[in-house]
Design a protein around this nucleic acid. Structure first.
Length: 262
DNA sequence: ATGGTTGCCGTGCAA
């Protein structure tokens, strides 16, 4: 199974880019975040030929997640988090038992203090709920893949400057610690780091605000693919597609693709 | 230090 995760930043604006993604990386399953559209208006026609199986969960203007697939689902789902119906999680199960979880973790605003910034408090609460729930559903032989825009760059090699980002939301120690507890809750392996090692600098997001994103290269690795122990030895390869940051009308995130021998 | 861009809508808000 080739599985892609991509924060597409409006699926209606960029549905055409999914064709380009297919030509370059040929994913079997595409997990999208920030689709920014209610389910009734999802651009099914633009993607139906490539991905006949779709499970979408969106809302107006904000958030929204979707799983698009060439392989049929045996079940689909998703739940609410922090008592909000804000479309940040969907799941799909496939023949053979592989279960995919697609998450869009809250970005957390600008001030990394939960006492002063409700959005940062929400992010930490969300991660806390993920940890509790994953611990509840964890089972030793489960074949699960967790992907998404987790809005945290945990390692030094996941950011352009560890020192300069220590107090910047997405790389603060309190978030990195919270994410580590989520990862521990189901003994998740970070697929890209398992395959690439911890030292190679890798980014999946570059701000729209840079004049020349490639020249300044102030990126972060916010988009992740994790697998449970049953799939760890099945990890084959990964691709991050920085060139997608130059596609016409591009997202500020680029696709991350992992191949798993399921 | 500050402001830089984008998508949603048709105004600021969230990222």
């Amino acid at each position: 199974m080739r599985i892609a995760t991509w924060n597409i930043n409006s699926v209606r604006m960029r549905a055409g880019l999914l064709v380009r993604l297919d030509e370059i990386a040929a994913p079997d399953v595409v997990c999208l975040q920030e689709t920014k559209v209610v389910d009734e208006l999802f651009p099914h026609n633009a993607v139906a030929d490539l991905y006949p199986h779709r499970h979408v969960r969106g809302m107006k203007a904000y958030n929204g997640v979707a799983i698009l697939s060439k392989l049929p689902f045996t079940a689909t789902g998703g739940r609410d988090w922090c008592g909000r119906e804000d479309a940040r999680h969907v799941t799909a199960k496939f023949a053979g038992g592989v279960e995919v979880h697609n998450f869009y973790v809250p970005a957390g605003g600008d001030v990394p203090d939960p006492g002063k910034n409700d959005k940062f408090a929400h992010k930490l609460d969300f991660l806390g709920e993920m940890e509790v729930w994953l611990r509840e559903i964890a089972s030793p032989r489960a074949k699960r893949v967790l992907v998404g825009d987790l809005n945290i760059a945990p390692l030094e090699a996941d950011v352009w400057s560890h020192k300069q980002l220590l107090d910047v939301v997405s790389h603060t120690p309190v978030e990195v610690d919270a994410l580590a507890r989520v990862q521990g809750a189901h003994d998740w392996t970070d697929a890209v780091r398992y395959l690439a090692g911890d030292n190679k600098q890798l980014f999946s997001w570059w701000s729209y605000r840079a004049k020349d994103w490639r020249a300044s290269n102030r990126g972060r690795r916010l988009d992740h693919v994790w697998v449970t122990p049953a799939l760890k030895s099945k990890l084959k390869s990964f691709e991050i597609l920085p060139d997608a940051r130059d596609w016409p009308k591009c997202s500020d995130h680029v696709p991350v693709v992992v191949e798993i021998d399921t």
